[in-house]
Each structure stands twice: as C-alpha cells, then as structure tokens.
Amino acid sequence: MSEELYKEMAQSIIEGDSDKSVELAKKSIELQMHPLDTITKGFVVGVNYIGDQFGKGEAFLPELVMAGEAMKAAVATLEPELMKLGESREVMGRVVLATVEGDIHEIGKTLVGTMLSASGFEVYDLGVDQPAEKIIGKALEVDAHIIGMSALLTTTMVRQREVIEELDKEGLRPRIKVMVGGAPITKDWFQKIKADGYSEDAIGAVKIAKQLVGKADA
C-alpha cells in the first residue's frame, strides 16, 4: 500500500504537480505514515529522478522548477506533523543566497535555491543587489553553513571576492563555506578568490553544497 503511495508521490514531483503532491502529503497524514518516510521514500525520489534527467539533457528547466515547487509544497504540508512529532526533517544545512551588489540577475540563483530546498537545505534567499554586510549579517543571524553568491556580469563578479575577504577578516571561515556561481564564473576565478565551491548549474550546486556540509551522496 505505502509502496504504491510512495510511487505516486515521486510521480507527482516528476510531473511538477503541486496540487497532487499536497493531496498525497495530506493522505499520508491521514494514513498515519511517518512524515520523514513520506519525504525520503516518496517525494525525494521524484526530485532526484528529475535532477538526473535534467543533468542528462532529457528534462528541461520548467520541469526542474515545477518539481522543486511541488516538493516545497509537499514538505510545507508535512512540516506541522513533524513539529507535532517533535522531529524535523533532517536539515542538510542552512544556506544564504544572494546576487551580489550591483547585479540584478537572479534566474540562476533562484533555481539553485529551489533545488537546494527541494534537496533538504534551509534556504534564505536575499534576492538581488545585496552588499557584503547584508549577506554576512544574514549568515550570522541564521547560523548559515553556506553562503551562495551569484553574479552574471564580469564587472560585478569581483564583489564575490569582497565578501570572501570580509569573511576572512572576521575569521568566519571555514565555519561558513562559500559557493559561487553565474555565467562568467570559471574554475580559475573560483580558485583565485579561494571560494569553497562552484558549479555551473543548479543540479551541480546541490552536489557541491552537500559536499561542503559533509553529506555528499555516496
């Protein structure tokens, strides 16, 4: 019975159907299934599948985003149950995301946020045009494990280095790890500014984030 339901849950994520995923989450509550099982054996399977397909070029961005949204909706439905049980979904880590100061591009960063939260990270997305002190301030406030910074322009990507230098100055590294991304970001740049991780797409970013918090996939 529950095996069937898990399959349906995964399928609802693959289809990016938030209504269906919420309905299935509610059904699992009625059936008194353990919410953590519901998440890890049901919904997460769907997210992983669509992520793999995207990596292979067989699924497309709208499918990836819709899957992420369906996942968020399902998890939000299950969270009160987890609270009641005095448990919470294992948080992979807390991530503060922002597009750096002077840069207003955010499609890529928002995607990274969606995929990170679908994968079990707690994500604080500050939006665009964020100065170093705001980013670091938020990271301290939520006790973030990771700061993720996006920049689309070669003229603004230097801001990523400023944030890293500021963190170093305050002695906040390696406590807080730094991920960078964005169209102009190369491996050279990532090494030059001594960031901890970089990826060129949202799926890769989830992998890197897991590594940075020591929970890499086997």
Binding site: L61, E69, T110
Partner: peptide, 17 residues
C-alpha cells in the same frame, strides 16, 4: 517582478515544447 517567476508557472511547463 522577479526573473524566473514564469519558470514556476504550470503553463510554462505545458506550452514550452
């Protein structure tokens, strides 16, 4: 008013192909 908002719409998924 956020870039990427339209990626979250069901209709995008339905129609993009």
């Amino acid at each position: 008013f956020k870039g990427g908002d339209f990626l979250k719409q069901k209709i995008t998924l339905q129609l993009f192909q």
